[in-house]
Design a protein around this nucleic acid. Structure first.
Lengths: 253, 253
DNA sequence: CGTCTCTTTGAATGGTATCAAACCCGGTGG
DNA sequence: CCACCGGGTTTGATACCATTCAAAGAGACG
């Protein structure tokens, strides 16, 4: 029932990152072959991480860098007043815990939204590799810069745009991320509940629900509980004030 | 009148970063002595950068990393709709242009809010140093992580908090940053106009003005144009929902 | 099949945006 | 010195969107 946290290395059938089905999504594709070899040696795979299990808590010292293999994860911080503040959602291939690896301790918390499989790289090993591979440093800088750009984008979304635009952007963003992962961009399941969506977008549960209903009423989407179908992608993009046209493959959708 | 962009190296009386009055604020204090020596060799100082002169525009390839020596700078992006989105303000000692140095081109623009003096480090030199000094990499990762934390914090401020809280946080944040720079934390000048403040906080000019007036009416601050005096720091902190107590010297105020 | 949680829907309240006008200040020219 | 601008700022009245409070409906699970 509970996750077995002491799996043998690279359990699960693969012998190295090179064979991983997520290779094309993982940052491992961007580093040197020998660094990847070393990575394969130190990576710990964990599966059966259950829903609502925490990967780490805010303030904790960083123990490992985590790559999500399957499932989804919610990142959040806790304000002084004690309420939760959702900062992002991770999908397979995403690196979880970047907030910590340069400071030594995590800024926020990360919790599984459903059963997950992970790749974990102990910080000690990772720091060692960082000291030896400028290439790996570059990749990390890029990942951080991307995460920052993401945070900036969210900043512009939350607090400046109306509810309908925020929700439309949220759905589109998710859709694009699923697409990059070879999943159906028009039919997917929301692993987070309305409360998390509302929190993430800086809205209330009721407003999110109302907005989703409105989008459904206007035949832009079909939504039933956690299941979403995008009926009119163009209309959705219009709501989000973005053009849905050229399939440019920019960094980090 | 216009800036002389071809200053001799280290003009201005100092022979190296070690002698710089800003040393204690600059990231140069955190790198090895010899890396700092190299830095001193490649740094270009520029002074007389006039108000509303741009350091860089969004989309431009990064030419240099800039450290602000005096004056203040506004960072902003331009949305698809063409309107400006203020993402931050830089004060002396801050590094400007971090958004670019790992991607190669700037995500946003940076413009002087008043006459500025700068230290510029050509990217080519900087990249070379990055490839040679893991320590420097660490420092850069830390700076990026800090900037990300800052962006995250702003995210929580904008769009979740009411106008009064946002403005109070803005004033307190500025105050703390002035304090770190040995300036009076209770009496300072806003180099940005109301429009920039409003944009940064995700509010309208009118709301910012009204809120400042209200804070003045309640004897929390005194404000006259761009000149601010904090009368009741505790009350201001209360408005901002933060405790103003232990002078902990955490990273990046 | 009842209970609990999540979600949806409704009505009223409230905070901020919007529209509009007055004000203040620095600069210019008579 | 003072009248006259023009931009930025302040203040006022109204409208609107999201929140809040409240309750009903839908799903998951024992």
């Amino acid at each position: 029932m509970s996750a077995n946290s002491d799996q043998p290395k690279l359990a699960g059938g693969e012998s190295s990152c090179n064979d991983c089905v997520l290779f094309s999504l993982c940052f491992a594709q961007d580093i040197d072959a020998d660094a990847r070899e070393r990575l394969s040696d130190v990576i710990q795979r964990r599966q059966g991480v259950q829903r609502s299990a925490h990967l780490h808590h805010g303030g904790q010292p960083a123990r490992q860098l985590t790559v999500l293999r399957s499932g989804s994860i919610k990142a959040y911080e806790v304000s002084r007043e004690g309420d939760e503040l959702v900062t992002g959602f991770y999908l397979p291939g995403d690196v979880v815990g970047l907030d910590a690896f340069s400071m030594g301790h995590h800024a926020g918390s990360a919790v599984a939204l459903e059963e997950c499989r992970l790749c974990e790289i102990p910080v000690a090993d990772f720091q060692k590799m960082l000291g030896e591979s400028p290439r790996l440093n570059q990749v990390m800088l890029r990942l951080l810069a991307e995460e920052m750009a993401e945070a900036r984008k969210l900043l512009l979304v939350v607090g400046r745009l109306d509810a309908r635009t925020r929700v439309a952007l949220f759905l589109l963003s998710l859709s694009r991320r699923f697409e990059r992962r070879q999943l159906d961009p028009d039919l997917f399941r929301l692993s987070m509940d309305r409360r998390d969506i509302a929190n993430y977008l800086g809205l209330t549960i009721e407003t999110v629900s109302r907005t989703l209903s409105a989008l459904q009423r206007d035949d832009v989407i079909h939504i039933r509980g956690k299941h979403v179908r995008i009926l009119d992608r163009e209309a959705l993009a219009e709501q989000a004030h973005v053009e849905e046209a050229s399939p440019s493959r920019q960094a980090v959708g």
